[in-house]
Design a protein around this nucleic acid. Structure first.
Length: 467
RNA sequence: GCCGGGGUGGCCGAGCUUGGUCUAAGGCGCGGGACUGGAGAUCCCGUCCCCGCAAGGGGGCCCGGGUUCAAAUCCCGGCCCCGGCGCCA
């Protein structure tokens, strides 16, 4: 058994230094750890020896005749006193060492270093799918469509936030702001139906490919949440409830990872594929004024998540398979997007390699993050204690992987921008049809504007005139 | 929420009254070996974690404290599970 980060720290500390440097961390963590670790080992040896003496005396006492016991007990008490102070020292060092160890982000896969080239690169686009629709006014400020020839349009697409409230009138963030706070929302009618249809579609897609559908707990205790994320670094992003006894999940990934906490799995059990469906709660502290309007960046949203527990040697294959599912789902939604490899300075600290899916947003003239697909290797499984029993009864930490399938509300923003027509009508992706037709009141092919969209001579919307 | 019962190694399950050969019995599962043409049956060995090159040593019986030379075993606090009552979408 061995955790890859711990083994690498002890065997190839320079690899860990490089990882920290590329992620923008303080490299001296390595030396701090090394000195704490060797100090701990030294004291541990002494403590064990004293305990050995105590145990030896103790068993002598049980065999000694009554009149000889007094002296032995006195001797044992002396050893005990010595042990006490050394023990305190040991657990102090151990606590320091372990809390430092828990602050290390995951090791990074070699391919990431070679693709990203240098430490300042944020991401590298790998693949473009679909043909972006570009408003004429954005043509000259356009950067990188990956060589894809865009479809140029003369009318200016309405941004998702204005579509939601102005053109369609199917959301109310002002009222939500009043009753809950900013970054909350009400969704109504056709957009609420769309939300359900997207959820069902992603669930249907994954369950047909062997994923087990799971509705997980929405709250976790401290022990668990701090095992699945770097809690100290993330605590501002997490809601706490019940006087800090519980934490709302930021994604289904967290309770799904914890499902096998403290378990030993058999090889034949793996891979375990889960499709999680749950809301995600995020404080979005520090987001400032970014994406303040609409439902792009909100405190609560539904998400269908892919999660996998795999054998260590299989995880890189599974990483590509999860990405394959993601690409397949998004291709079927008929929204142009690209896949980027996220570079170390922008990667999640739990990930050894991470892809993001970025959808084209016509009203903004740029790609925006919609989904994220990571191989977390043994970072979470070490903290959660999830192992697999291998041939020869050897135990090894499993690998965990997670990937968004569909983050519902954010995906709706992409649909609102990409699938809108000049008159404000929104075309519903065809694959969602079967999940809507069961309901007489649900929309089928289109969501209609609440009035006539009036544009100026430059193609900009100036008014939605109600009938 | 109240009363009663309970949490032991991957799983099941003894031990707890009466603290000390508990080196945690036994079974199942799993791994290796013997036997076999092969499989089954049978037999042998192994199967929690940490330190150590090793010999060896230490820790571990839900979690955290305490008593004792010595705690799975006794005491206190907490969490969870099962049964009954209460409450309830």
């Amino acid at each position: 058994m061995s955790w890859s980060l711990l083994a690498t720290l002890r065997e190839r500390p320079d690899d860990v230094r490089r990882m920290l440097r590329w992620r923008g961390y303080d490299e001296s963590m390595v030396d701090q750890f090394m000195s704490l670790d060797s100090e701990w080992r030294g004291i541990k040896a002494k403590v064990d020896e004293l305990r050995h003496r105590r145990n030896a005396l103790s068993s002598q006492i049980s065999k000694a005749p009554p009149e000889a016991r007094g002296a032995l007990i006195e001797e044992a008490n002396k050893v005990l006193k010595e042990l006490d102070s050394l023990n305190a020292e040991l657990s102090r060092i151990e606590g320091e060492r372990d809390s430092l160890l828990r602050r290390f982000p995951n090791l990074i896969h070699e391919s990431v270093y070679s693709i990203c080239q240098n430490e300042s690169v944020e991401s590298v686009a790998l693949k473009y799918v679909g043909r972006p629709r570009v408003w004429r006014g954005y043509l000259n400020q356009l950067s990188g469509l990956g060589g894809v020839e865009p479809e140029v349009i003369d009318w200016q697409p309405v941004g998702h936030a204005d579509m939601l409230e102005g053109v369609l009138g199917l959301g109310d963030t002002a009222k939500a702001g009043e009753v809950a706070g900013s970054r909350f929302f009400y969704l109504f009618d056709d957009l609420a139906w769309l939300n359900l249809a997207l959820s069902l579609y992603a669930i249907d897609f994954l369950t047909q490919r062997g994923f087990r559908l799971v509705m997980p707990p929405h709250m976790l205790n401290y022990d668990v949440i701090s095992s699945v994320i770097d809690f100290e670094a993330f605590k501002d992003a997490i809601y706490s409830v019940d006087n800090g006894q519980l934490y709302l999940i930021g994604t289904a990934e967290h309770p799904l990872a914890a499902l096998y906490r403290g378990s030993e799995l058999l090889e034949k059990d793996l891979p375990i594929l889960l499709a999680g469906f749950s809301p995600s709660y995020r404080r979005e502290a520090g987001a400032g004024n970014r994406d303040l309007k609409g439902i792009f960046r909100v405190h609560q949203f539904y998400k269908v998540e892919q999660f996998a527990f795999t054998l260590p040697e299989d995880s890189w294959n599974w990483h590509e398979k999860l990405l394959g599912n993601l690409v397949e789902i998004w291709s079927s939604l008929e929204i142009p997007f690209r896949i980027v490899l996220v570079c170390p300075r922008e990667m999640s600290r739990t990930a050894a390699k991470q892809y993001d899916l970025e959808a084209w947003m016509p009203a903004q003239g740029m790609f925006r993050e919609m989904a994220s697909c990571s191989n977390v290797t043994d970072w979470q499984s070490y903290r959660l204690g999830i192992r697999v029993i291998r041939k020869g009864m050897k135990r090894e930490y499993v690998h965990t992987l997670n990937s968004t399938a569909i983050a519902i509300e954010r995906t709706i923003t992409a649909i609102l921008e990409n699938n809108q027509e000049e008159d404000g009508t929104v075309k519903i992706p065809k694959v969602l049809n079967k999940y809507l037709e069961a309901f007489p009141k649900a929309p089928r092919d289109y969501i209609h504007p609440r009035g006539k969209v009036i544009r100026d001579s430059n193609g900009r919307v100036i008014e939605v005139r109600r009938a």
